[in-house]
C-alpha cells in the first residue's frame, strides 16, 4: 500500500471543502470495503483519504411521507437487513442486501459507498434504479441537489458527483399497490460473490384488468453502468402479460446489454443469463405484484 494523508472531518462542510481542495487526488472512505482492497493492490493510489464516517448526519434510516424511505449514505447493509422499517415496507432491500458479499463486509459496507464506487456489478444499484430512487448530493457551501439514481452513473467508477460533492442520502419512494419487485443475481458460488449478471425488475399491474401499467427492468454487470432496458419495458406496458411477452422482453434485454468477457464469465454467457434471469425476475415481480396489497398510496 502506498502512503497517503488521512483526514477525518467532523462536519459535512469540512469534508466537502477537503474534497474540493484535493480534487482528483482524494478518495472518500466510507465502509472501505472497496477502497482498502484497491489501496492494498495499488489499483487506487490517492494522495488523500477522507474518512466521512465521523460525520453524524449521514447515518440514519427514516420513513418520510413525502420522500418515502430515506437512507443516510453511511447506512451499512447489515443495518438495512436489521431495520424494522425496511423489513415492513421495503423487504426487497433486505433481500438484496443479504446477497451482498459476507456478513463482515455488510457490517462495514455502506449504501453510499456501494453507489459512489460505481462498479457495474454493484448489487444495490439495479434495484434502487428499479424503485425509482433519487440521490441527494451536497456541495461545499451546503447547497444540495437531487438526481435520479439512473442519471448518477457515468461509467465504471465514474459518477455525476461534481468536485467537492458528497452523496448524503438515498430516497426510495414507497411501493405503490399492486407492484412487485425482484432482484436476481447470477453467480458461480452460493456466497461471497460478485454478480455475473444482476437483474432487478419492478412491475405494476392495474386493478381488475391486471394489465401492466409500469415496468422498470435494470441490469447490472452487463455494461459500463447499470442499464435500464426501455425496449424490454415497452413490450410489457399496457398488456396483460403472458409468458410470450416475458420471453420477448427478456430477449430484448439480452440484445440490449453490452457485457464483456472476463474471468468471471464470457460475454455470450452473460447475454444468455440476462435473458434467463430477466424472465425469472419478471415472473417473480409479477407474482409479487399480484399478491401485493390492493390499497395504499396511489
Amino acid at each position: 500500500m502506498k502512503d497517503f494523508e488521512y483526514h477525518s472531518p467532523a462536519t459535512l462542510e469540512e469534508a466537502c471543502q477537503l474534497l474540493k481542495k484535493y480534487d482528483g487526488q482524494a478518495k472518500v472512505l466510507a465502509g472501505g470495503t472497496d477502497l482498502i482492497p484497491g489501496l492494498y493492490r495499488r489499483e487506487i493510489v490517492p494522495e488523500q483519504v477522507i474518512n466521512i464516517k465521523g460525520i453524524p448526519s449521514l447515518n440514519f434510516i427514516a420513513n418520510e411521507e413525502s420522500k418515502g424511505l430515506v437512507l443516510g449514505s453511511l447506512v451499512t447493509f447489515n443495518e438495512i437487513i436489521s431495520s424494522p422499517i425496511i423489513e415492513e415496507h421495503y423487504p426487497i432491500l433486505k433481500e438484496v442486501a443479504e446477497k451482498i458479499a459476507s456478513h463482515q463486509v455488510r457490517n462495514l459496507a455502506t449504501i453510499g459507498g456501494n453507489l459512489c464506487n460505481a462498479a457495474p456489478s454493484a448489487d444495490s444499484a439495479p434495484i434502487l434504479i428499479a424503485l425509482d430512487s433519487t440521490v441527494a448530493l451536497i456541495e461545499p457551501g451546503g447547497k444540495e441537489r437531487t438526481l435520479p439514481l439512473e442519471k448518477f452513473f457515468i461509467g465504471p467508477g465514474e459518477t455525476a458527483l461534481a468536485p467537492g460533492e458528497i452523496l448524503i442520502q438515498v430516497h426510495i419512494p414507497l411501493l405503490k399497490p399492486r407492484t412487485g419487485v425482484s432482484y436476481l443475481k447470477q453467480t458461480s458460488r452460493q456466497a461471497l460473490e460478485i454478480a455475473v449478471v444482476g437483474v432487478a425488475a419492478l412491475v405494476r399491474l392495474e386493478k381488475k384488468t391486471e394489465k401492466c401499467s409500469l415496468v422498470r427492468l435494470v441490469i447490472g454487470a452487463c455494461a459500463s453502468t447499470p442499464l435500464r432496458i426501455p425496449a424490454a419495458e415497452k413490450i410489457l406496458v399496457g398488456k396483460k402479460i403472458g409468458s410470450q411477452d416475458i420471453e420477448a422482453a427478456a430477449k430484448a434485454a439480452s440484445e440490449a446489454v453490452k457485457p464483456i468477457t472476463d474471468v468471471r464469465a464470457s460475454k455470450l454467457y452473460r447475454k444468455e443469463m440476462v435473458r434467463v434471469q430477466c424472465k425469472r425476475s419478471l415472473e417473480e415481480a409479477i407474482s409479487r405484484a399480484k399478491s401485493s396489497p390492493e390499497t395504499g398510496m396511489e
Partner: peptide, 11 residues
C-alpha cells in the same frame, strides 16, 4: 464482526 484487513487502524 468485521474483516480487520478492511479497516484502517486510524478508523
Amino acid at each position: 464482526a468485521v474483516n480487520s484487513c478492511l479497516v484502517l487502524a486510524v478508523e
